[in-house]
Design a protein around this nucleic acid. Structure first.
Length: 442
RNA sequence: GGCCCCAUCGUCUAGUGGCCUAGGACGUCAGAUUCUCAAUCUGAAAACACGGGUUCGAUUCCCGUUGGGGCUGCCA
């Protein structure tokens, strides 16, 4: 007996930004396809003409590719079961609608076409939640039937979703738990059409940190931002980190691993391990993970990813200094500012911390004359020079280190001091020491 | 309101009746790194929602309560 080849699909609606929860759904589908050697299909559910936009479609395609979730069949790719836009499949839906009418499963009412829902409860054999049997709600008790073709002739979600899953030979439907309540309708449709339904796996939702629903239209703008994948791209998260973090939301490798290569995840991922409980999105942990990925990657890749975040080119030697420190690429400008701007702005908080006035000026001037005579301009030699000066004055090196950092970078935090000085070069360091002594010396 | 799903540290999770004085990670706090830091290292505090059962024994099984989430559109 040969197992049926797995065919899964991600079926977004191009009506806005790509939701981070949708991304996780796409990821789980993709992982399952890769784990089983199956096929990952992208299908665009654009039956609601009024709400679809081309930009939104672009966002979906780019977003999936950014994460490395390439589809095997779908837009810009083709495949044997196209077209992959529901707006182009009207003839197919019509065929199925006619079949339902002929077999007496559908009838017209108020200009729309309604599906005759079975009166007895339907059990969903869900791979994650187990068998789920729904009792009829108040509404359903009054009238369990539902619309499958609108008055304007457009077929609705429940119908097209099922028809396409049939036509595209979908074997497993992995989707958000918000669809669990819809599933009996879909099962009834399959039954009426005389087709064996796919297996269902409803995955838990991703919620905000406060447990509320992640919504792109949340009245709180900071929450609304977090719901969109675009935010993470813009803030300088790297795809591997976002993907890794998402893998750990609702799925667990069952050991203590946090950072995993995608190959490892593909190897271990399977439906039975998916958790039943909703998970909250912890952007802080994602940020930590992003820093881990940034530090672990090659300098070349770091430079490549950094490029869009830098107003002007920055030498690799400088990027190397901040690569180990930074967590988000969007913070790059302020971390490398010392290397690309001569007009250093002094951070008030840093000035407060280090101090100002004649005492500071004296230290900076001493430093300047010390560095002016340093023969070899290297991190090691500079460290040696600074420490000699401190010893001469009978103070701790820190007494000179902090003012020096402030003078050359304007900040209290940043890369290690001596490599920073080395990268800057003698001339710029001396200029900055003099300027800082003047500006902060009063 | 009705229906459905869910419930271990603040968060993500390990745990499928005794190995649990409940493990890991993020975050937090405290030290260390006699240069900062959102880096690194070390350590600490921190959880089985509640009430009934079942059992020799429950975080683990059952029921209820409470709490959270979802659905309840001629949206998807």
């Amino acid at each position: 007996m040969r197992a049926m080849t797995v065919r899964v699909r991600f079926a977004p609606s191009p009506t806005g930004f790509l939701h981070i929860g949708s991304v996780r759904t796409a990821l789980f589908n993709w992982l399952y396809a890769r784990h089983t050697g199956g096929t990952f299909i992208l299908r665009i559910e654009d039956t609601d003409v009024a709400r679809n936009t081309p930009e939104s479609l672009r966002t979906i395609l780019d977003g999936l590719r950014w994460l490395g979730l390439e589809w095997d069949e779908g837009p810009e790719k083709g495949g044997p079961h196209g077209p992959y836009f529901q707006s182009q499949r009207a003839a197919i839906y019509r065929r199925y609608v006619e079949q339902l009418q002929r077999s007496g499963h559908a009838y017209e009412r108020e200009g729309a076409l309604w599906f005759r829902m079975p009166r007895e409860p339907i059990t969903v054999p869900d791979l994650v939640a187990g068998p789920v049997t729904r009792q009829p709600t108040d509404r359903e008790a009054a009238d369990p039937d539902f619309v499958i073709v609108r008055r304007d002739g457009q077929p609705v979600f429940h119908l097209v979703n099922v028809v396409d899953d049939i036509e595209m030979r979908i074997t497993h439907v992995i989707r958000g738990e918000d669809h669990l309540s819809n599933t009996p309708k879909h099962l009834a449709l399959f039954r009426a059409l005389g087709v064996t339904p796919p297996a269902y796996a409803h995955i838990p939702m991703i919620l905000n940190a406060d447990g509320s629903k992640m919504s792109k239209s949340d009245p709180d703008p900071s929450k609304a931002r977090l719901a969109s994948l675009a935010t993470y791209i813009a803030d300088g998260f790297v795809p591997e980190a976002v993907r890794n973090y998402l893998c750990l939301l609702g799925w667990s490798p069952k050991d203590d691993r946090q950072i995993m290569t995608i190959e490892e995840v593909i190897e271990r991922f399977d439906l039975p391990q998916i958790l039943r409980a909703n998970a909250r999105f912890d952007v802080t942990k994602l940020t930590w993970m992003n820093g881990e990925y940034l530090r672990a990657m090659s300098l070349e890749r770091f430079a490549e990813l950094a490029q869009p975040f830098l107003p002007k080119p920055v030498p690799l030697s400088v990027l190397a200094l901040v690569k180990e420190k930074i967590k988000l690429l969007k913070d790059l400008p302020e971390w490398v500012g010392w290397a690309v701007t001569e007009e250093i702005e002094f951070d008030p908080v840093a000035v407060e911390k280090v101090g100002r006035g004649p005492a500071l000026a004296a230290k900076l001037e001493a430093l300047a004359s010390q560095f002016a005579t340093t023969t070899e301009w290297s991190a090691v030699a500079l460290e040696d020079a600074l420490k000699r000066l401190a010893t001469q004055r009978g103070v701790k090196p820190a007494e000179f280190i902090h003012p020096c950092r402030l003078a050359v970078s304007g900040r209290a935090i940043g890369p290690s001091l001596y490599p920073m000085l080395e990268a800057l070069g003698r001339e710029r360091v001396l200029t900055r020491l003099a300027r800082a002594a003047k500006v902060l010396g009063q």
